[in-house]
């Protein structure tokens, strides 16, 4: 198996504002979000980062997508370093998270062309790919409707399509089914499997056990910014269900604290 992502000791610490300290119920000014994270992902697999809210999943994915910089460590993605060559990394990935929004003023058609241009996709490829993707997700009928007039489900499908305009080798997906209605969620997960079958690599974060069981080839369990276990689903589960195994690990790490 060909390794496509190597995460080498990524760490990230945030300074908390007074308000954040109150929310987190702590008096500490610093919060270690991710601590010396190491894992690898192989080409053509779905790798899942599983952990509770606040474990550091989103921070990790944001570092991998170069939206934020690690305090230390690095990640090499298909030969490009997130620290040394962020533009190179961004050219190879499609990043999708609910915090990335599309300008509601424009139409799907315009946005597809606009983001394709930013990704330097040749015009003829854009035309073919747009037709394929729009048809695949049923956006073709709404291609000239402004985003603000689209249904929530359609907006989410469009966001997915836009993040993949350049047919990236690696797709980084933060909580892929969060906030999606059941139909859209199914469309998205089916598509992720399709992409894997095409040889693409998918790194996703989630706190939903069933999603990991259904989609992921390998999984990393992340608790309080530490990667506690990493391996194939069978290796991590060790004969138990993922849910039972996760809570066992959680208890080990937190020492019975809830």
């Amino acid at each position: 198996m060909e390794e496509i992502l190597r995460v080498e000791g990524l760490s990230k610490t945030f300074t908390l504002s007074k308000k954040q300290q109150q929310i987190e119920r702590t008096t500490q000014r610093k919060k270690v979000a991710v601590d010396n994270l190491r894992f690898t992902a192989n080409r053509g697999e779905i790798f899942g980062l599983l952990g509770p809210n606040g474990a550091g999943k989103t921070t990790t994915l944001r570092m991998l997508s170069t939206l934020i910089k690690p305090d230390s460590g690095d990640a090499i993605l298909d030969g490009c370093s997130v620290v040394g060559d962020p533009e190179g990394v961004r050219a190879k990935i499609g990043f999708l998270t609910s915090e990335l929004k599309l300008e509601e003023f424009f139409t799907p058609n315009y946005l597809f062309d606009f983001f394709s241009r930013l990704h330097q996709v040749p015009e003829d490829v854009v035309r073919i790919r747009k037709e394929q993707m729009f048809t695949r997700f049923g956006i073709d009928k709404f291609a000239e409707v402004k985003v603000k007039n689209l249904s929530t489900g359609m907006k989410q499908k469009l966001s997915l399509v836009i993040s993949l305009v350049h047919n990236p080798e690696v797709i980084i997906f933060d909580e892929p089914t969060n906030g999606l209605d059941v139909l859209t969620a199914r469309t998205v997960t089916d598509y992720l499997q399709e992409l894997r079958d095409e040889g693409k690599t998918i790194i996703l974060s989630t706190h939903i056990f069933s999603l990991v069981e259904r989609l992921c080839d390998r999984v990393g369990i992340i608790i309080d910014g530490h990667l506690t276990h990493c391996g194939t689903l069978a290796e991590v589960c060790d004969g138990m269900t993922l849910e039972d195994r996760f809570f066992e690990i959680y208890k080990e790490v937190k020492g019975g604290e809830q």
Partner: peptide
């Protein structure tokens, strides 16, 4: 664009 979250979408493209 910051407020609406659309600038982040631009920032994940390979554009400098």
């Amino acid at each position: 664009e910051k407020e609406r979250g659309t600038i982040a979408t631009l920032l994940v493209t390979p554009m400098r």
